[in-house]
């Protein structure tokens, strides 16, 4: 019970303290919406084309939202040494990292529904398979958060975390089938797509929104679960190796 009190309070403190920090607003909300607006205007299509853009912008919102938040909650606290307080608490490292990432996962899921709510005002979303869509958002949020954790643990400054994140985030925008299918990429780039977690998340979302998924949902879910596990184990190892010297 005591461990869960600690877990819950770490999560709530991060949500209260960091959700409205400028990097999270700019990278987590404004950037994905601006990106979508650009695609929408460029396509010249009407509101009905929004559905085709929705999986991409949802995945983008989750990816940028979670990775930006981790850069603040983990890297910033490590830099001002307040993270040591958490390391000194009678809490397993696994639970501690889950508490630190929990706030980012919730932030990512909430971020995903900002474009969904906006789209609901302009288009008919009744055909979306929500039973696939919501778990897909959650899985993308978990995988992106753990990717953010790997990055946040690897650097020492918040700006480094944001910059390092962009090395992964921007290629993913083009390589993961968010706005155009992976099949339309040059052949030599396609293998790269399939080693990035967002490809599987975006595919799940495409399947839920307009049934245009390229892979079986079971494969998407399994791949995302594997990415989550691998990234979490890598972060845990990094914390043990780099922060407990």
């Amino acid at each position: 019970m005591k461990r869960w009190i600690a877990f819950w309070n770490i999560l709530v403190k991060d949500m209260r303290t960091y959700y409205l920090k400028p990097p999270n607003i700019s990278w987590g909300l404004i950037f994905p919406l601006a990106w979508t607006g650009m695609f929408f205007v460029k396509s010249g299509a009407g509101p009905e084309s929004l559905l085709a853009l929705l999986p991409g912008v949802v995945a983008l919102s989750v990816l940028f939202g979670t990775t930006s938040l981790l850069a603040v909650t983990v890297t910033f606290e490590k830099r001002n040494r307040s993270f040591e307080r958490l390391l000194l608490a009678p809490l397993s490292l696994e639970l501690l990292l889950l508490a630190k990432t929990g706030g980012a996962i919730i932030f990512g899921v909430a971020n995903a529904f900002v474009p969904v709510i906006m789209a609901a005002c302009l288009a008919d979303l009744s055909h979306i398979a929500w039973s696939t869509f919501v778990p897909a958002v959650l899985l993308i949020a978990v995988a992106s958060t753990f990717l953010g954790l790997v990055i946040a643990v690897a650097v020492s400054e918040v700006f480094e975390a944001q910059t390092f994140s962009n090395f992964f985030r921007f290629p993913m925008v083009f390589l993961c089938g968010l706005f155009f299918p992976v099949e339309s990429l040059p052949l030599f780039l396609r293998p790269l797509s399939y080693v990035l977690p967002l490809t599987y998340g975006a595919d799940l979302l495409h399947g839920a929104v307009d049934s245009t998924n390229a892979l079986p949902p079971v494969l998407d879910v399994s791949a995302l679960a594997l990415f989550c596990l691998g990234l979490f184990v890598a972060s845990l190892g990094n914390v043990k190796r780099k922060w407990i010297l």
Binding site: M1, A6, N9, T17, N80, E84, L86, L88, A89
Partner: peptide, 27 residues
């Protein structure tokens, strides 16, 4: 542990900092 740096959370109030630290020990 009282480290050589004052490493509490700058955004939290004094009261909230203490409550948070207490929560870390399951109080």
């Amino acid at each position: 542990v009282v480290p050589d740096d004052n490493n509490l959370y700058p955004e939290l109030t004094g009261f909230d900092n203490l409550r948070f630290c207490a929560a870390l020990y399951g109080m």
